[in-house]
Write a protein that binds this DNA or RNA. Structure first.
Lengths: 180, 180
DNA sequence: GTCTATAAATAGATAGAC
DNA sequence: GTCTATCTATTTATAGAC
């Protein structure tokens, strides 16, 4: 029984990791349940033993993706806001497919098209993000501005086909945060 | 002949206006060609006399939407960047369904999931946006930062289910631009 | 150029065997 | 819990009448 429970947990984990990756790069609508299950090396039918709907999966996958993205942050406890911005607003974060990206930036306009449950999930993650920035600035308004420069800067940089402009944008956002 | 040509132009215009509105609020995947044509009071079959594909429509609808959003800007020639930010980062721009919204913010992460043609279109519109900011600041880097605070701020504010936080975010972005 | 009808593919979700 | 099979609905795109 304990073994079964743990096994189920691992299976669910595998589905969530697959979903987090596929959703982050393609959004909710472009990814099918079938694609997620294939990535997790399972079949469609097994899906509903773990999630009650595609929206349910999306919500949980965003949380999983945010946790995974956290592991990429600079780990020293005295890392400055500038340190965090440097990693967050990097070309690697923008381009590297195999590293878990931050769903706050990769899915921002996708979220505003989803139901209230999903917006609640996004909002909670965003609050955590701002709180982390707040530890460095001790100023709620600056924390919000930094969050927008990071999340918004990365999101826009991903939509631009002009790579020079995209790089300039990342740099400009870093500098704005450094000047805080 | 001239009459027919003009009539076709008007029909296409109606399709584009319908598409711009529906796409801006729901993204590319959630809107079907059928929905766009119904909004324009036409049927599916007529669509392909005007556009070669759904992607083609999307690209042209983004341009149309950006032009429509322009008409909402403060019109005085000596409007400051703060004036523009005040309208752009307003609750009305965020919430009002019947006013044409800026696709740069409403579709930012939707665009990064689309093909190169669409990214090119988005990039051109973004460059125009930054150039307008540049007229006020005379500083390319500040223009980029202002653009991120406006577009990113509005985009994130739309994804938040906590209205107080969403409003605070808009205000914080306005203040950051005012301090430039 | 616009219509109706339809082709062809794919989606989310469920049923039942093991 | 996972599988195969299937239901039902929806999608983009095309064909042909008017």
């Amino acid at each position: 029984m304990a073994w079964n429970k743990e096994h189920k947990q691992q299976t669910k984990e595998k589905i969530l990791v697959s979903a987090a990756k596929l959703f982050a790069h393609n959004g909710f609508e472009k990814i099918s349940i079938d694609q997620v299950m294939q990535e997790a090396k399972l079949t469609r039918g097994a899906f509903y033993a773990h999630f009650k709907s595609k929206s349910d999966l999306y919500s949980q996958a965003i949380i999983k993706g945010a946790q995974a993205a956290q592991t990429r942050k600079p780990k020293n406890s005295n890392a400055s806001l500038a340190n965090i911005a440097q990693y967050y607003l990097s070309q690697t974060h923008r381009d590297e497919y195999d590293e878990p990206p931050c769903p706050l930036a990769f899915l921002v306009s996708d979220i505003s098209q989803q139901n209230e449950d999903i917006k609640n999930t996004y909002t909670q993650i965003f609050k955590g993000f701002v709180n982390q920035a707040n530890e460095h600035t001790e100023d709620q308004q600056k924390a919000l501005q930094s969050a927008v420069l990071m999340i918004g800067g990365l999101a826009i940089s991903r939509a631009l086909s002009d790579e020079d402009l995209s790089n300039d944008l990342l740099t400009a956002c870093q500098k704005a945060i450094n000047e805080f």
